[in-house]
């Protein structure tokens, strides 16, 4: 490999990582802002999440007396695994120099790793809230994952690859979605709402024991640890928006390294992300939170949407695009 290639690759990796890391709090802020506007409030300013993170990062950690080293390593595990998806998910370009280390199936399991350790940390402090959060999170995850896998299946089969860069590059770049993609998109959208703890499923803004899921698990975290956990959940939100944007609506994503296409890719990415975030915020404002045991209804809908996506795909005479 020659040097220019190596350096370009390294720069691309660093840009994607930095973008993913730094854009995440902004998207969270945008969702909050849209919600605030819809609720006739002014809402916090857009830079507020950054200030929050900065403040938390400078505060000391308070650790529960009963907690073990699981509690200590979890923030690192969650932060690092969530950040690592920026290496395999196309953000504004489909060129991923390290894309070979994992595909979309690996992505599901990387997210599962973060969830696994968060749930353990929830149990570690010995508080009833932590256990409640862990229990709910793991139970919901078990019904989220089939729907997610089916949606991903559709995307992978239509593109003939499970590599996210290839999926984004080969996805049907018409202006209109095919029915199969529409269904898979809707299925994954519901999954995204559930995975990122948005309103019909969970409420990121509440600390009410009746309703909280994710917040209950991280209730004992403070200071720097809390900063890492919060940042990771922002990144997870951004990740799902990115998946929705780039797998199903890959308009404008850059397939080469020319500056023009990279610029178009970056601008298009920004527009898509903020549009999707707006949609998400609007849905959050216009629906009521579901009771915990009604959530399976929603996820069953997501599962069936994805299943129909596959059926419709075959219907169109689609065959597996895999080159055997």
């Amino acid at each position: 490999m020659n040097w220019t290639e190596l350096i370009t690759g390294l720069v691309m990796i660093l840009i994607q990582l930095a973008l993913f890391l730094l854009l995440a709090p902004l998207v969270t802020a945008w969702v909050r802002k849209v919600k605030a506007i819809m609720q006739n409030r002014q809402g916090p300013r857009m830079m507020q999440p950054y200030s929050d993170l900065w403040k938390l990062l400078r505060k000391e950690v308070i650790q529960p007396a009963t907690a073990s080293w699981i509690f200590t390593i979890t923030p690192y595990v969650v932060f690092v695994t969530t950040l690592s998806v920026a290496l395999i998910v196309p953000i504004f370009t489909t060129i991923l120099p390290l894309g070979f280390i994992g595909d979309v199936i690996a992505l599901v399991y990387i997210l599962a790793t973060a969830r696994f350790f968060t749930a353990l940390a929830g149990l570690d402090a010995g508080s009833p809230f932590g256990g409640l959060g862990s229990s709910r999170e793991m139970s919901l995850a078990s019904i989220i994952e089939p729907a997610m896998m089916l949606a991903i299946f559709t995307a992978a089969v239509t593109a003939g690859s499970t590599n996210l860069g290839t999926i984004a590059a080969q996805a049907d770049v018409g202006l209109l979605l095919t029915p199969a993609h529409l269904f898979a998109f809707l299925g994954l959208f519901i999954v995204a709402m559930a995975e990122t703890g948005r309103i019909p499923v969970d409420n990121p803004a509440t600390h009410l024991e009746l309703t909280m899921i994710h917040e209950a698990m991280i209730l004992e975290y403070s200071g720097k640890y809390l900063a890492l956990m919060e940042w990771a959940s922002s990144m997870k939100l951004l990740l799902f928006l990115t998946l929705l944007a780039n797998v199903f609506l890959p308009w404008g994503i850059s397939n080469d390294l020319s500056l023009v296409s990279l610029g178009v890719g970056a601008v298009g990415y920004g527009l898509k992300i903020f549009a999707l975030a707006t949609v998400m915020a609007v849905i959050e404002c216009s629906t009521a939170k579901l009771r915990l045991f009604r959530v399976p209804d929603l996820l069953a809908a997501s599962f069936v949407l994805s299943l129909i996506a596959l059926i419709l795909f075959y219907l169109l005479g689609g065959e597996s695009h895999a080159v055997l």
Partner: peptide, 9 residues
């Protein structure tokens, strides 16, 4: 065993 079909390392 399919060309360009996603990898893991």
């Amino acid at each position: 065993p399919a060309a360009n079909h996603g990898t893991v390392s």
